[in-house]
Design a protein around this nucleic acid. Sequence first.
DNA 1: TTAAAGTTTTTGGTAAGCCTAATATTAAAA
DNA 2: TTTTAATATTAGGCTTACCAAAAACTTTAA
Lengths: 168, 168
Amino acid sequence: MEKIFSRKTEDYLEAIFKIMNEKGYAKIKDISSFLDVRPPSAVEMVKKLNDRGLAIHKKYECVTLTPEGEEIGRIISDRHATIRAFLEIISVPKEIADSDACVMEHELHPETIGQIKNLVSFVKSAPDHPEWLEHFEIFCKTGEHTCGEKKHAEGEKAHSLTTLSIGI
Amino acid sequence: MEKIFSRKTEDYLEAIFKIMNEKGYAKIKDISSFLDVRPPSAVEMVKKLNDRGLAIHKKYECVTLTPEGEEIGRIISDRHATIRAFLEIISVPKEIADSDACVMEHELHPETIGQIKNLVSFVKSAPDHPEWLEHFEIFCKTGEHTCGEKKHAEGEKAHSLTTLSIGI
DNA sequence: TTAAAGTTTTTGGTAAGCCTAATATTAAAA
DNA sequence: TTTTAATATTAGGCTTACCAAAAACTTTAA
């Protein structure tokens, strides 16, 4: 019950799920361009999904998902949205947030995803919203708390958005 | 300058870095048991690291890192610590935090890591620390803000730590 | 309705990482 | 010092997932 599907399996299911939600059907070409792979790769993978009962595909026809495949696609999409929302809260630029969500959505423990989800609701529904976010943004720039009386931890200094060279 | 090293390359460098910091030297067996792979896999990978100038290894001798390999090992270790600290702040149990940090440490954009780091310092050094954390924990259990007057977002409900079956 | 253009599939190959089994080397114990 | 145990290495194979080139099929346009 632990880790059943490969990252790539999940990527394909998520892609098919999203494409179908958007245009009603998914062709091989849609999938391959969505995932930025060549058509033969998509054909090969879709065949495997078909054999595993996650997708349905007959030659030259559209791809659809079985209930199981669709469930996984939906779960991964939801995780993506959750993670993306979190990253945007902490001021990660949208494009980076999106691509990092693609990484995180696959292998995090469900409890971690749940707590990230909680954090997002907590911040968004807090009585001091959106001041909290503003304070955070100021802190990122200055390393100081705008409205507080307490000293900040020694040795800690905000990691400026403009100082990314080393990448720790 | 973007993504130069594979996840596994980084895993091996981080493992060697940590083992060396702990016991002064790294044998093949240390590495293979640290990463939970068989010795031949470690030998093969260490050989590649050697050929790429990231590690130094002569047959039957200890493995060490070159300056470049060590730098990468250190960066990944630091990332791990940052992410782990963040996950612990949001009440993810230590073991899960540790294994999820192993996943996240590799492919997140440096800016994302930086902002997570900022978030950790922000929370830890805040004037209302540690009340903020306590409020968050209560929110996780109840879905309510303890000290606030503002309604919480409709449709949102805290994802209880005990309700993890589906794993969204 | 046939030709051209576009899409899908097949075929054959590659690379990363893992494994087992067998062999070689080193370290420890008798 | 010689035997035994532990460790390291080589050899040969596997799986996943990618690709390019070529063949097969569909769709569109003449």
